[in-house]
Computed example of a mutant assay.
Amino acid sequence: MQTRNFDLIAFDWDGTLFDSTQIIVRCIQAAVCDVGGKEPTEKAAAYVIGMALMQALAHAAPDVPPEKYPELGARYRHHYARHFNDLSLFAGVLPLLEALKARGHRLAVATGKSRRGLDEALQSVELKGVFDGSRTADETAGKPDPLMLHELMAQFDLPASRILMIGDTTHDLQMALNAGCASVGVSYGAHEPEAFTVLNPLHVAHSVQDLQDWLLANG
């Protein structure tokens, strides 16, 4: 078996494994309008994906006063719940994860979702038990703070050099950089890949198959 360069591969969720970017964008836009804010552009709404929920909503709706944040969060959750069953894994994700597990990698999720949201998503796509660990924004610091990755290092007793972070946003790659970990970007999610360059990812994958090919050759 080829020697592994990374013992733990940590994935972002939305826009990296889960095909949810456009629905999240629409839910953010609708929630902001519901509380009287100016509808954010698609680009502005997509930019905040990956952040902790309230941090993301506040950033996307700078004209909404803080006293309306609880209502803003509630409206986002309302819209997202209506579309939850419309979401699915990107094609090819399950074979990718199976190939990495067979190669002996440990797998984790590091996401801006809540613990409840991630657990529901894992249950809905029958992924219980596939991941060896996970961190969510409501139980640790949100991206790009490196705490999620630091906690995974401690959990698996691994140095930063043995962990690879994969994500679709600059928040993911900045978190990896802040933690001293290598990263890989994917171009099919929320952020334009041109923004990844300054964050020094080892690779930018343009499809799940591209990601799998690169990981099996270099991971």
Rank of each mutant, 00 (worst) to 15 (best):
D7N: 13
I9Q: 10
L17K: 13
S20G: 14
S20A: 13
T21G: 10
V32R: 01
C33L: 05
D34M: 00
G36N: 02
K38Y: 01
T41M: 02
E42F: 05
A45W: 01
A45Q: 04
A46I: 02
Y47Q: 08
V48D: 01
M51W: 01
L53V: 02
A56P: 04
A58P: 00
H59V: 02
A61E: 00
K68E: 00
K68L: 03
P70F: 03
E71F: 00
L72W: 05
A74T: 07
R75I: 00
Y76A: 03
Y76Q: 03
Y76S: 03
R77N: 04
R77G: 01
R77K: 07
H79A: 05
Y80S: 04
L87E: 10
L87G: 09
S88R: 15
L89D: 13
F90A: 06
P95R: 09
L96F: 12
E98K: 06
A99I: 02
K101W: 06
A102M: 11
A102I: 06
R103Q: 15
H105W: 13
A110E: 11
G112D: 05
R116W: 14
E120T: 09
Q123T: 14
Q123L: 15
Q123H: 12
Q123G: 12
Q123I: 09
S124M: 15
K128N: 13
V130D: 08
F131Q: 11
D132R: 11
E139I: 14
T140M: 10
K143D: 09
D145A: 07
P146H: 01
L147V: 07
L149H: 07
L149V: 08
A154D: 11
F156S: 06
D157N: 12
S161H: 10
I163L: 13
I163N: 06
G167K: 03
D168A: 05
D168E: 05
T169A: 05
T169G: 07
L173N: 02
M175Q: 04
C181V: 12
C181R: 01
S187Y: 03
E192V: 03
E192R: 10
P193G: 04
A195H: 05
T197H: 08
L199F: 06
L202P: 02
L202K: 05
L202W: 09
H203W: 12
S207G: 05
D213E: 10
W214A: 04
L215M: 06
G219N: 08
